[in-house]
Design a protein around this nucleic acid. Structure first.
Lengths: 221, 221
DNA sequence: CCTTAGAAG
DNA sequence: CTTCGAAGG
C-alpha cells in the first residue's frame, strides 16, 4: 500500500504556520504533491525544505510568491524532471515529473483562467500539452499517475452553484471537455471512489463570504 | 488648562485595532494631532471618523495608504484649512491649520528624507515653506502652536546613536539647522520641559531589531 | 520589523 | 477572504 496526497496549500509558508509539518508527521504520506507553494526552497527552514524521511523536489516560478509546486516522497524516485520541458509553463514552476519503478507520478498546478478569462487560452494550452506529455509516457509503456490542482470542475454535481459558474473559468465548456477527454483516455478520477451521486462533496471553497462554513464549494479535481 | 497630544500612529486603522479609541476616551485630549494616518476618513467607521465629543479634520494623500494627518478637537475651531496652500505638499495630506480664538494650531507631518536621501530636498523645501507660513501668521499677530512629526532629531542627546546617524536623514546638518532656526525664532520645544540634560528619553524607535525594547531610539520632535 | 495597497487566486 | 511581494517608513 502506498498513500498519496495532493494539496493546494495556498502558500507553503502560510501553511507551515498553521501546522503543515504536524500534519505531515501525522499523515506520513508516501508521496505528497503540493500546489501553490508560492516559494522557493531557499526561503524555507530545513525542517520544511527537507523533512526527516523525505526527498523533496521543487517547481519554482520566476515570479516570487506566485504559483509553484513541490513533491515530498519517502522513496527516492529513479529520476525527477522539473517542468514539462516547455518554458512558458516551466517559468511558472507548475510541473514535477517523477519516475518510480512502476509508474510515473506528475504533480501539476494547472493555470487559473483568470477572473477576466484572459488566461483561459494559456490554461487550455497547458491542458493540451500536459495531456500529450502523459500520452507519450504511456506510449513508452509507462503507467501515469497525476495529481494536482486542475482548476476545473467536471460536472454540475461538482459545484454547489453550477448555473452561476457557466461563464466563469473553472466550469467553461472547453475546460470541462478536457476532463471528458482525459477520462475517455482511461484515466481514473480517484475522487470518484465516492458514490457517483454523492453531492455536496467539495475540495475547494472561495474565501469570500464564509463559503466554506456554508459548504458552497467545488470539486476542482 | 488644555491638553494637546501629537502622535505618529503609523496607520490609523492599525492603531484602531490596538486600542486607539480606548486610549482616546481615557486620555480625552482637547486637541489631538495625528500623523501617518495612511487613510482617508471614508475608509473609517463612524466611531473612528467622528468620535462622540470631537470634531475631526483630515489631510489625505492622493496616494492611498500613504502619509496623511488628522486633527481631533473638542472645541470646533473658528476656521480650518487643509494644507499649506502649496500643491506639492498638500497632495500628500501633510498639513492641517486650525484657527482658535487665542492661537493657530498646525498639525504637520514633515516629509521623510528617504533611505537614499532622495527626498531630503523636498523635506527641506517643506521645512522652509512651513516656517514661512508660521511667520506670516505671527506677523498677523497670531500665536502659533505646531505639533507633528518633524522627522528630525535636534541634538546628539536626542539620539541613542548620534555618530552612526550623521549621514542619515533625520540628523543631517541642514535638517538640524532648521530646528536651530525655529528655536531662535522663539518657538519652545515642549519636550524640553524635561531636564535639559535628560538622556535616553526618546519618542521614536525603528521597528528593526527590537530597538524599542533596548531603547535605542531618537527624539524626532 | 510594521503598515498599506495591489495582484492573483 | 487570503497569500505574497513591494514601497515606504
Amino acid at each position: 500500500m502506498l498513500t498519496l496526497y495532493s494539496w493546494n496549500v495556498n502558500g507553503l509558508r502560510a501553511a507551515a504556520k498553521k501546522g503543515f509539518l504536524d500534519w505531515l508527521h501525522t499523515a506520513q504520506p508516501d508521496i505528497l504533491g503540493l500546489q501553490e507553494t508560492k516559494c522557493s526552497p531557499d526561503q524555507l527552514d530545513k525542517a520544511l525544505r527537507q523533512p526527516e524521511g523525505y526527498h523533496t523536489y521543487w517547481g519554482v516560478s520566476e515570479r516570487p510568491g506566485y504559483s509553484g509546486a513541490a513533491l515530498y516522497t519517502r522513496q527516492k524516485p529513479n529520476h525527477v524532471q522539473i517542468g514539462l520541458g516547455i518554458p512558458e509553463y516551466d517559468r511558472e514552476g507548475r510541473t514535477i515529473v517523477a519516475e518510480y519503478d512502476k509508474f510515473v507520478l506528475i504533480v501539476a498546478y494547472f493555470p487559473n483562467g483568470g477572473r477576466d478569462l484572459s488566461r483561459v487560452p494559456f490554461k487550455m494550452a497547458y491542458c493540451a500539452d500536459f495531456f500529450d506529455y502523459c500520452n507519450q509516457l504511456r506510449q513508452q509503456g509507462k503507467h501515469v499517475i497525476f495529481c494536482g490542482d486542475v482548476n476545473t470542475a467536471h460536472q454540475a454535481i461538482d459545484l454547489a452553484r453550477p448555473k452561476q459558474n457557466q461563464k466563469h473559468t473553472g466550469f467553461l465548456p472547453e475546460e470541462r471537455a478536457w476532463i471528458d477527454q482525459v477520462i475517455a483516455a482511461g484515466y481514473v478520477d480517484t475522487f470518484r471512489a465516492l458514490p457517483p451521486e454523492q453531492t455536496d462533496a467539495y475540495s475547494w471553497w472561495t474565501y469570500i463570504s464564509n463559503a466554506r462554513s456554508r459548504n458552497v464549494g467545488g470539486r476542482l479535481h
